[in-house]
Design a protein around this nucleic acid. Structure first.
Lengths: 158, 158
DNA sequence: CGGACTCAGTTGCAAAGCGAAACTGAAGCT
DNA sequence: AGCTTCAGTTTCGCTTTGCAACTGAGTCCG
């Protein structure tokens, strides 16, 4: 099986991981959240080879996660920039939960290099996942996957 | 720059993405959450080539995300299995938020193929990220990254 | 006991992907 | 006119995939 075939799988995790699970993609998203704009910004923030960066940006634009658009640096100078789309911003929980995990499990012996302050309440925050119904934290073994409206019938659809 | 160099970066997102951001890793984790145990389970659940699967499992075990251990299938038959460690289970928010994102943005026109039921409250749940302090949802632009205890001083440490 | 089967990989090979550096072309600056 | 910056593309050698075949330990079947 080739990796891109995951894009057609009838499973959200598979499709999402086919889009995001290529080398460097998270590094690019991290740069995007840290306000990178131009090609050279991403190049510097990530250290990826130019050709690979060009390819990844193309893909992320195709997936609707980034948007490429011209931007007026000054009156005359026109450049292009890559910004997160609405869908890209929706990836925030993924990035934050990776950061939380890394702070705990990626071997930072002196403590996390970066922490987050929640500007609306002013405190250092450790975000976690809660159920939108009961507000309780969602734990791995307290969740049951069920077929949804887009589930395939027992026999494969055409 | 090579991809593994991200493992040494002083940034949780970089290190985490170096561990998880290789092709197929999320597919393997998905299989793990769906209770895959043996090598052949993972092979069937993911469709990866055998040699690549062997390599990825080795890495995930090295990172402490999976654990390889012998397991008694029956009185006589001994096999080995790969189970999520504590650290692996802590990745649940990452997987769930990828699933939530995919259900919304990965082009499921008939609706999500899988939904989650929160067994403690019994309802279909759409988990989201909240601040552990104020309980409000954490949004991308309402968060400020600050240097933490493990931050590098302005001059690179030795 | 001998042969077939299953599990869990390893090996070999062609094709694809990556990384570094050089090159291109448009646009601006001096 | 010549130099620089931006945003890539091209080239080339090296590494990683994907696939199939092979290995070797343990099991089951007659």
């Amino acid at each position: 099986m080739r990796h891109e075939e995951l894009l057609e799988a009838n499973c959200a995790i598979s499709r999402t991981s086919a889009m995001l699970g290529e080398r460097w993609v998270f590094a690019i998203l991290r740069a995007a959240y840290f306000r990178a704009r131009t090609f050279e910004d991403y190049l510097e923030a990530t250290g990826i080879a130019r050709n690979v960066l060009a390819d990844r940006l193309r893909n992320l634009v195709d997936f609707g996660i980034l948007e490429r658009r011209p931007y007026e640096e000054s009156a005359k100078r026109k450049r292009s920039e890559y910004r997160l789309t609405e869908a890209g911003l929706d990836l925030y929980p993924v990035i934050v939960s990776m950061m939380e995990w890394g702070n705990k499990h990626a071997g930072f012996l002196d403590g996390p290099p970066v922490v987050l302050r929640h500007t609306t309440c002013g405190e250092i925050t450790h975000p976690h996942m809660v159920c939108d119904h009961c507000g309780e934290e969602v734990l791995p073994r307290e969740v049951e996957p069920l077929p949804g409206p887009g589930a395939e019938p027992a026999s494969k659809r055409s």
